[in-house]
């Protein structure tokens, strides 16, 4: 396994993501700037919080252009995944623009609470090595109020009032809206797949 880099952009789940990698036998390198991305075999962008603050941190740390130009496979987690898209309605902020689509607020409805918090089923939309070993309908742990639309890049969707993207892959760009680091065996599978799959 080539080196695994976790980007520290202020997300509170940074530690949890690192611990999850350690449980898989991987010692990640935590980086805060563009220089840290050099030579990375895999890059993980975790994130918790709001999109404007997330993008502000990436700009302040000089990471926006380096992430856009990155050649290594990249996995965004939760807010980190949302930041891969063009734009977020949360604060109307421009994001990295690596994936097509605009992140929208989950609409509240009778019986549909926002934030979407808890375990929900993953519904496979198309084949991807990211889901190797993960049964269709397996549960993952979500905590979010905004979500990406279902597009041609969607690998698995989840349903909370309407369908949204739970797992995405476009070439070397991957994302999980849920928290693989807190999604028991399902999450561990997906992290391991990201680390081991061919791109």
């Amino acid at each position: 396994m080539s080196s695994v880099v976790v980007v520290d952009a202020g997300g509170a789940n940074l530690g949890s993501v690192c611990y999850a990698l350690e449980r898989l036998g991987v010692q990640p390198r935590v980086v805060t700037d563009a220089a840290g991305l050099e030579g990375a075999g895999r890059v993980i962008l975790p994130g918790v919080g709001a999109a404007p603050e997330g993008m502000r941190r990436l700009h302040a740390q000089g990471l926006v252009e380096p992430l856009r130009a990155l050649q290594a496979p990249l996995l965004g987690i939760c807010l980190g995944m949302q930041l891969l898209y063009e734009r977020s309605e949360e604060g109307e902020v421009e994001c990295l623009g690596l994936l097509q689509g605009v992140v929208h607020r989950l609409p509240a409805a009778p019986g549909i609470r926002v934030p979407h918090m808890g375990w929900n089923a993953l519904r496979a939309m198309r084949p991807s090595a990211l889901l190797d070993g993960v049964a269709d309908g397996a549960s993952a742990y979500f905590v979010h109020s905004y979500a990406a639309p279902v597009t041609a890049d969607t690998v698995a969707a989840s349903d909370h009032g309407s369908l949204f993207t739970a797992v995405v892959q476009h070439g070397r760009l991957c994302g999980a809206q849920f928290h693989p680091e807190r999604s028991a065996a399902t999450g561990a599978h997906i992290l391991r797949n990201f680390l081991e799959m061919d791109f």
């Binding site: 509170a12 789940n13 940074l14 611990y19 928290h179 028991a184």
Partner: peptide, 29 residues
């Protein structure tokens, strides 16, 4: 946080942002 792979919440003794930050950074969800 190191060993468990399901979410957890910490309650008790949190009365300011700094304490909350330390608890979250220690790995609480």
């Amino acid at each position: 946080a190191r060993l468990i792979d399901i979410p957890f919440c910490v309650a008790g003794g949190i009365r300011d942002v700094e304490t909350a930050r330390r608890v979250l950074h220690a790995g609480a969800d």
